[in-house]
Design a protein around this nucleic acid. Structure first.
Lengths: 144, 144
DNA sequence: TATAAATAGGATAAATTTATCCGAAATAAA
DNA sequence: TTTATTTCGGATAAATTTATCCTATTTATA
């Protein structure tokens, strides 16, 4: 459904959020360990989250990644997905037609539309806060 | 959402179905032209559709690909997707956890479940017949 | 039986995604 | 101001997906 990069990005953002509630910054090393991802690759993905203002970074000693506490509830899953994979997953055609809309639909357009709309709706209405709280409460996990 | 191979496979199956209604067999060349896909790659995908009993092939002169008319309404989109991409798209975890279920969920498990179930339901209840009829009636298209 | 027309399938190449490595730049603290 | 620590960013490698090429095999018809 999403690329590996996007999966890592979402999990990284969730982990950073949980730590930010405790006013702690985290390193790519710690993030990669906690979400079970390759460290250097994760660091690259973190950079695109920073460029897209989803997380913020502090360079130098005692630096690391963090999210302002009051922003955690504002960040939507859709923003993270869009920053890493783009929005073709819920905008583009399910059969890959370059142009696919009501006037020139692919044969499965209406069928896909229901699913895509459901996905888009979910991504736009799910906040980092909800997901991070699932981790903090111990009712969900970032790795197996 | 699906791989290129899967998109080509779905479109190829739909095109073969429309021709099979007219008792005509089609070649990879004609298929690739009509669905706007690379011919040799499409031929490979057709082979996996054949191996999975989704379409049938007749070798030699006057051969080609076809689907028995009475099977067109029996083939579900889910079968094609499973044959080419596997079923991880609606079975696997949205965040890539190896093990993700009610007892050990990822933080977005419930959110994803709704979308995945909707997708699975759509794929299992959409037949090749419906899709092919959209093409035959001229109300949908296989390329731009 | 010979021939032409098709699919089948292996080998390989190109493109994209995933992943690693290393040095530059920034920053807090001694 | 020096040092240790940390993110940033470019270069490169590995793996996977997408795509091409060529030959073998099959089969209907002349």
């Amino acid at each position: 459904m999403f690329s590996k990069a996007c999966e890592y990005g979402i999990k990284a953002a969730i982990f950073i959020a949980t730590k930010s509630y405790e006013d702690k910054r985290v390193s790519p090393k710690e993030i990669a360990e906690k979400i079970n991802s390759p460290q250097a690759f994760t660091a690259k993905i973190l950079q695109s989250l920073v460029r897209n203002d989803i997380v913020s970074s502090v360079k130098g000693a005692y630096g690391g990644f963090e999210i302002q506490k009051d922003r955690i509830s504002q960040v939507k899953l859709a923003q993270i997905v869009k920053a890493i994979d783009g929005d073709s997953i819920y905008i583009g055609c399910g059969l890959g037609l370059e142009k696919c809309d009501e006037n020139h639909p692919c044969p499965a357009h209406d069928k896909f539309k229901i699913v895509r709309d459901e996905l888009q709706n979910m991504l736009e209405n799910t906040t980092l806060e909800e997901l991070a709280l699932n981790i903090k409460s111990g009712s969900a996990f970032l790795k197996t």
